[in-house]
Amino acid sequence: MIAPENLTEYHKDILKEIGNIGAGNAATALSELVNKSVDMTLPTVKLVPFHEVVQIVGGEETVVAATFFRVAGDAPGNMFLIFTLREAITLLRQLTGDPNIDEESIFHSEIARSALQETGNILAGSYLSSFSDFTGLNLSPSVPFLTVDMAAAVLSYGLMEMSQVSDYAIIIDTQLRETEHSSIDSHFLLLPDPDSFQRIFKSLGVQVNE
């Protein structure tokens, strides 16, 4: 097992490449879904203390629509697709063509919620399949779980595995952004379990010094 604190720049570059390939594929899937061109930022690999994790999505009490996936297979981990409420509304209006979608719909409309979950499902599927192709590791997402709540309450759930070995999280973060109006701006967060890092590096023939 690799302690997060011992991760080298080289290791981080490899994880970035995974984010790059995965989110690149997901961006294509999203742009097909909304029929607009979707861009992504260069992935960042963040090694952060737990209480700083939420800064990624704008602070502890920022309300987010988060779709969570448990990744099963050779390199298990947690995955989140995160939209702020405003972004989720924009996305849903584009997906459904219904201009009346508002905050209320995200909490209570079955159609709005399942559209959001299904988006997550498609994006996570494309992210993981390219991750899988790149590493040769067998990876599959669980069914999507959507929750709308404070960012800290949501994200801390994804830290449970890592919290048993460290006070730091390693997060592969990629932002997807609609090119034209930059109205959809979402975060794709991948948090491999502590034991998964070694398996990821090994699958790519990278030496790991413990």
Partner: peptide, 24 residues
């Protein structure tokens, strides 16, 4: 009070923690 932390104090100071999910 941050996640995985505790603080001890007295009035009139208040104690606060944000975004408890599965944490207590």
């Amino acid at each position: 009070v941050k996640i995985s932390d505790y603080q001890v104090t007295k009035a009139p100071i208040k104690l606060k923690t944000t975004g408890l999910g599965s944490c207590v």
